Simulated assay, not measured.
Amino acid sequence: MITPIPFQEIIEKLNIPAYKYFETIGSTNTTALSWLEEGAADGSIVFANHQQAGKGRKQRHWVTNPGSAIALSIIMKPTQQEKEYLQFFSAVAALALVQVLQEKYQITAQIKWPNDVLIQQRKCAGILLEAAWHGQELAGIVVGIGVNLFPASVPPAYLVQFPATCVQNHTHSSISQFDFLGELITAFSNYRTNFNFDNFHNQWENLLAFRGERVYIIENDESHISGTLLGVEFNGDLRVLTNDAKILTFSAADIQLRPTNDVWEK
């Protein structure tokens, strides 16, 4: 397999300890988890130009068309301090992506709880956190990040549960797949190095999509609860004021979040 020179240049510039590049792969997260169990170094990455079975929440899958997107998995071997905040690293990755979009491409983006990034209320990225264990001991985590860069990455409407878009549709700046990769890895590494929970939580809430707006919650793909999205609890749960003036919290495993004006409402 020939690794593209621009990709190699980004790897060298960022001092990535190890990488696996694939022209075509099933899932970067699956490969990264196996590599982690084999002893991959902290900060190693898996990147695919074409991903055939990307992984999302609730066992959802998607395809990354060749050259159209970022399909990246970052291997982390958390420090003792980081282990206290493991569940938040999907939001950390989302913040890193929002920063890149704003600073490099002048695009305003928001974080749709718990793990998506939206541009103009359309999904441009998804993040999936997975852990590897050796018995009761945590071997590490994999932060999987998928970003739609170009129009070819946007799936047909009938295949998605939420409206989708791509970065190129919202900027006049030229986009390089590998430059964007480098910018994203750099931003994530900086957030990780300088992590402060209070600052992180404030940024997350400030960038929370649909905050202060009416939303509905789909629990277990069945029952609906409507209310106003208030924010995120310190444990990462979503906080909602219901129509009957009750404040309820929801964990990511329980629900899907939709705005009440969602044209995709079923």
Score class of each variant (00 low, 15 high):
residue 119 I to D: 05
residue 265 E to Y: 10
residue 234 F to A: 10
residue 231 G to T: 01
residue 238 L to C: 10
residue 34 S to P: 00
residue 1 M to Y: 07
residue 195 F to D: 00
residue 200 F to C: 01
residue 13 K to E: 15
residue 140 G to N: 02
residue 124 C to K: 00
residue 81 Q to M: 11
residue 152 A to K: 09
residue 205 E to C: 01
residue 80 Q to D: 15
residue 103 E to Y: 02
residue 83 K to R: 15
residue 123 K to E: 08
residue 189 S to E: 14
residue 161 Q to R: 05
residue 195 F to V: 00
residue 71 A to W: 02
residue 119 I to E: 06
residue 124 C to E: 03
residue 181 L to T: 01
residue 6 P to N: 11
residue 196 N to M: 06
residue 111 I to Q: 00
residue 203 Q to M: 05
residue 85 Y to L: 09
residue 227 G to L: 07
residue 224 H to Y: 13
residue 68 S to E: 13
residue 78 P to C: 09
residue 178 F to D: 10
residue 91 A to G: 12
residue 57 R to P: 03
residue 61 H to S: 12
residue 247 I to V: 13
residue 186 T to H: 09
residue 81 Q to A: 11
residue 42 D to G: 03
residue 38 E to V: 03
residue 128 L to R: 02
residue 7 F to Q: 07
residue 262 D to C: 12
residue 48 A to G: 02
residue 121 Q to V: 03
residue 113 W to T: 00
residue 108 T to D: 12
residue 172 H to S: 14
residue 134 H to V: 10
residue 221 D to G: 14
residue 44 S to L: 03
residue 82 E to V: 08
residue 42 D to N: 15
residue 235 N to W: 04
residue 81 Q to E: 15
residue 209 A to F: 05
residue 73 S to I: 02
residue 212 G to R: 04
residue 244 D to H: 11
residue 106 Q to D: 14
